[in-house]
């Protein structure tokens, strides 16, 4: 199959999307498909790590992430950001859960040595006290991963440490708590992650209403209390269709799962849903102006 055929094939598939996807996201999807087709053509797509799948298609108790990422799923490596405030530690749990995500989570990991995780805390970043390590392993009698923690006084040192650890290729997951950083720093971190195939999860301090500085992160998340549940939002990233879900966190295992799977049900195959036409305003999705960055079917629960 030549490149042109692949492209045409993808275009035809994309052509069946009509209705709830706006023009921009269609373009994004087309671009991503083109990129994937090119990589397939060159022979090194989706087999970066020895032929294993590198995208997480399903997470958070069965949410299909493939619909929300132009790449087809959540990247296992690279930079991911979690926006958080001082008074809520759900972001820590989210970071810990994301650090444990793997593309084949249903299979037990066959490892000789436990993969090391590094948790770097910049002292002034989050006013939440220390991470309490026994709670992270509360239900695991034999912890499968070795955890190394750091408390660092200067942000510069914290960022250097993360870059060094990510570049070394010896550490699978780095969690970094830091104050805000600029685009150059984020780009450096992203490149270091790519060099060492490391997943870097940054807990980025963010106040509600504050403008978020741009960054090349693959995904950007936000988690807030929502009654007895939490509202997990995918708010940005590269080629990301934003969405939010109602989730709950298991206190013991720190697993995050969708609170009401039926309510949060994801759209089935695009051709199966009845065609709903929204007036295509320049501003967003017509009826759901309040949730203009979200897909219309995903915010039904927010009354």
């Amino acid at each position: 199959m030549t490149l042109a055929h692949a492209l045409l094939d993808k275009r035809n598939k994309i052509g069946t999307f009509n209705g709830h996807i706006s023009m921009t996201s269609r373009l994004q999807q087309a671009r991503a498909a083109l990129l994937r087709a090119e990589k397939h053509w060159q022979g090194h797509a989706a087999c970066v790590n020895g032929g294993q799948p590198v995208l997480i298609k399903r997470a958070f108790g069965g949410i299909d992430l493939g619909n929300h990422f132009a790449a087809g799923g959540l990247m296992t490596t690279g930079l991911h950001e979690i926006m958080t405030e001082h008074h809520d530690s759900a972001a820590s749990a989210l970071a810990w859960y994301m650090a444990g995500l793997s593309p084949h989570s249903h299979q037990p990991a066959k490892q000789n040595k436990p993969a090391t995780r590094l948790w770097v805390q910049h002292r002034k970043a989050l006013d939440q006290g220390q991470v309490y390590a026994p709670a992270l392993f509360a239900k695991q009698s034999n912890p499968q991963c070795a955890l190394v923690m750091m408390n660092i006084d200067q942000q510069q040192t914290a960022l250097w440490t993360c870059e060094e650890a990510a570049k070394s290729g010896q550490i699978g997951n780095v969690i970094l708590e830091t104050t805000d950083y600029d685009l150059t720093t984020a780009r450096r971190l992203q490149l270091a992650c790519e060099a060492g195939s490391c997943r870097l999860i940054v807990l980025r301090q963010h106040r509600a209403g504050q403008k978020i500085a741009p960054s090349p992160a693959w995904s950007r998340w936000h988690i807030t209390p929502h009654g007895i549940y939490r509202k997990l939002s995918l708010i940005g990233g590269r080629g990301v269709r934003p969405a939010s879900w109602k989730v709950c966190i298991d206190e013991a295992t720190l697993r995050i799962s969708v609170a009401a799977p039926l309510e949060n049900r994801l759209p089935p195959k695009p051709h199966a849903i009845p065609e709903i036409r929204y007036p295509a305003h320049a501003g967003g999705y017509g009826k759901n102006k309040g949730f203009s960055r979200q897909g219309p079917d995903l915010c039904r629960h927010a009354k």
């Binding site: 790590n49 020895g50 990991a109 066959k110 490892q111 000789n112 040595k113 993969a115 090391t116 002292r123 190394v148 750091m150 408390n151 660092i152 006084d153 200067q154 040192t157 250097w160 440490t161 060094e164 650890a165 070394s168 290729g169 010896q170 550490i171 699978g172 195939s197």
Partner: peptide, 25 residues
Amino acid sequence: NPSASDTIALNELFDRIGHHLGPKD
């Protein structure tokens, strides 16, 4: 398995990081 890490390389990494740290780190 690519995620299984090499002990020597890991210790060298911690050496590098440890020697870079300040007194409060």
